[in-house]
């Protein structure tokens, strides 16, 4: 959204981490600017949480430097962490306290956060009704909101959210997404980790893709993800004949086992005799023409995203060629 002129809020330079004898993170470098939503995409176990823990000084990097607003997170915690609000993994709050008492607890650990500010963040996350109940009675969605409230307490410049939609229902996910976008529009830098490609696509401006502790790519979401898709779903009638024709075409390969290539969300919405092909964008219109000429009824054609695994495959292949 914002151009490169925006202030760099978080800068991660050549960060490495060794735990025991094993290197968990190999040389991670990226910047996050004010007003942008930065995605951190990778499968579970890729080192996302370890990296996030380093961003908030829960883990010290073996080498490299992490700066927030110019302050070294590991050496000047008190200055750097003033500008950071975070939820690392689950928003674990004190379950024997009420939501309000939790917020008061964290407000005391920071200067300039008074009762009025607590009321403000409670309003912001829409928790007025239940804020004086014990956290042990909260649903996961409410805990998540309380987690965000505590992260926003200190008026941070950088918000770090680890899998923020984990465990939420579809409505909750949508609300969360809109909420994050509103915060970013107000100038906050938001760092979001996820293992879901679709979520990053819907939410983020830029993305870093991480796998086995290595950054595979950093860039605009459009460039990295959306452009790389070559999968097309066809809903044809009669399906068997349509498939035959598609198989004959050179520009188009039929995928025999779509369940291996597609996300569950897409598979669930597909009709049982839909055909999945792999083809370049420019070949689509010629293919449609051919099918129509053969008298096939075309009910739907749409291009879809590859899974994360495929994206990785493409990226690592690309590296090899270079």
């Amino acid at each position: 959204m914002n151009g490169k002129s925006s202030e760099v809020v978080l800068s991660v330079e050549h960060v490495k981490k060794k735990i025991g004898r094993k290197w968990i993170i190999h040389d991670v470098t990226f910047d996050v600017r004010a007003g942008e939503i930065f995605g951190f995409l990778g499968p579970n176990g890729a080192g996302k949480t370890t990296t996030i823990r380093m961003l908030v000084d829960l883990i010290k990097p073996t080498s490299g430097m992490i700066k927030v607003s110019g302050y070294d997170v590991n050496r000047q915690q008190e200055q750097a962490l003033r500008y950071v609000g975070s939820i690392v993994e689950n928003p674990e709050m004190y379950s024997f306290l009420t939501g309000w008492e939790n917020l008061e607890h964290f407000a005391r650990m920071q200067k300039g956060v008074d009762q009025a500010r607590i009321t403000e963040v409670v309003d912001l996350v829409g928790m007025n009704r239940r804020i004086h109940d014990k956290v042990s009675t909260y649903s996961l969605g409410m805990r998540q909101r309380l987690g965000i409230a505590q992260a926003l307490l200190g008026r941070p410049k950088l918000l770090i959210l680890d899998e923020p939609t984990n465990g939420l229902d579809p409505k909750g996910i949508k609300e969360m997404r809109q909420f994050i976008q509103r915060l970013a529009a107000e100038g906050l830098a938001v760092f979001v980790s996820s293992h879901l490609l679709s979520e990053i696509q819907l939410l983020c401006d830029r993305v870093a893709i991480i796998s086995s502790g290595r950054i595979l790519a950093v860039g605009e979401v459009e460039e990295l993800i959306s452009g790389s898709s070559d999968l097309v779903i066809w809903d044809l009638q009669p399906a068997a004949k349509g498939k035959q024709i598609l198989e004959q075409l050179e520009a188009c390969q039929v995928v025999e086992h779509p369940e291996e290539e597609l996300d569950d969300g897409i598979l669930a919405g597909m009709s049982s005799d839909a055909i999945v092909t792999r083809m370049q964008e420019h070949a689509t219109s010629r293919t449609v023409e051919r099918l129509v000429r053969e008298g096939i009824e075309i009910r739907a054609v749409h291009r879809i995203n590859p899974t994360l695994e495929q994206l990785f495959l493409q990226m690592t292949e690309g590296e090899n060629i270079e």
Binding site: V56, D57, L58, Q77, E78, Q79, A80, L81, R82, V84, S86, V88, E89, P91, E92, M93, Y94, F106, M109, Q110, Q150, G154
Partner: peptide
């Protein structure tokens, strides 16, 4: 909750 406690500017 240690994560919440130690990610404060303290």
């Amino acid at each position: 909750t240690i994560k919440m406690l130690l990610t404060r500017p303290v």
